[in-house]
Design a protein around this nucleic acid. Structure first.
Length: 220
DNA sequence: CACCAGGCAAGTA
DNA sequence: TACTTGCATGGT
């Protein structure tokens, strides 16, 4: 099985998406902790719902390592209720805080001082942090060159022949990372643009949208 | 009313 | 490994 070199095509797709949507200024969030919290809360959930939960945490002045660490899970779940799955996610936030406190003395600086592959393994070992959440944390909170894969990415890029529809997360990630220069800024903008396209045009169930800018790499 | 949203873990076979 | 299910609010 020979691997195709998709570098030029992937860069062309990036240019087309950037041309259509412009810079996305991701990740929305004022601090790295806010980015991490958002990454956990947005699991299978629309960002508008996550914003309400984040606003609640800010209004109660709990959006800090010490604030979240000192809040009991029941109170936390009440505040993040609009984000959905609130009981599950309150536990997941607590799991991350426990990891941060025990492994890095509560310091996000120290956490991102670890080697990226090692830190990725550590994050994946936290119950409630899977590959997409771990990679979102590494890229958007840590500025590490890790490409984030999500449901939009698989749907869009399988429709256009870059991926198999049922491919594994790591396979999809490898396709991008083996064909793109490991620049955090590029990975950041690329994933954000994919999400923008997914939200606007490439809907589940519907046929390939004829306004999708990616079509231009084939139709000329 | 149905369907979807920037997933993940746990259980089953 | 390959399914299936539970988790839950809010927008379209």
């Amino acid at each position: 099985m020979k691997k195709k070199n998709n570098t030029k095509k992937l860069l062309r797709v990036y240019d087309l998406l950037f041309e259509k949507f412009g810079p996305r200024y991701w990740w929305p969030g004022e601090t790295r902790l806010e980015v991490i919290v958002g990454a956990i809360l947005t699991q299978n959930t629309s960002w508008s719902n996550v914003e309400k939960a984040i606003t609640n945490l800010k209004q109660h002045k709990l959006l800090s390592v010490k604030g979240l660490s000192g809040t009991d899970e029941k109170t936390l779940s009440g505040l993040i209720r609009p984000a959905g799955y609130f009981n599950v996610k309150a536990g997941r936030l607590k799991n991350f805080l426990r990891f941060l406190n025990t492994a890095y003395n509560g310091s996000i600086d120290r956490m991102f001082g670890s080697g990226t592959p090692e830190l990725r393994r550590e994050l994946l070992a936290v119950n409630g942090i899977g590959p997409e959440t771990a990679d979102s944390i590494l890229l958007y909170a840590g500025n590490k060159p890790v490409f984030v894969i999500d449901a939009y990415t698989k749907r869009i890029f399988s429709r256009h022949g870059f991926l198999r529809p049922d491919c594994e997360y790591e396979d999809a990630q490898a396709m991008f990372m083996e064909n793109l220069p490991p620049e955090p800024r590029l990975f950041n903008e690329y994933h954000a643009l994919i999400v923008e396209l997914g939200k606007n045009l490439c809907r589940p169930g519907k046929p390939l949208c004829n306004r999708c800018p990616i079509r231009r790499i084939k139709n000329g």
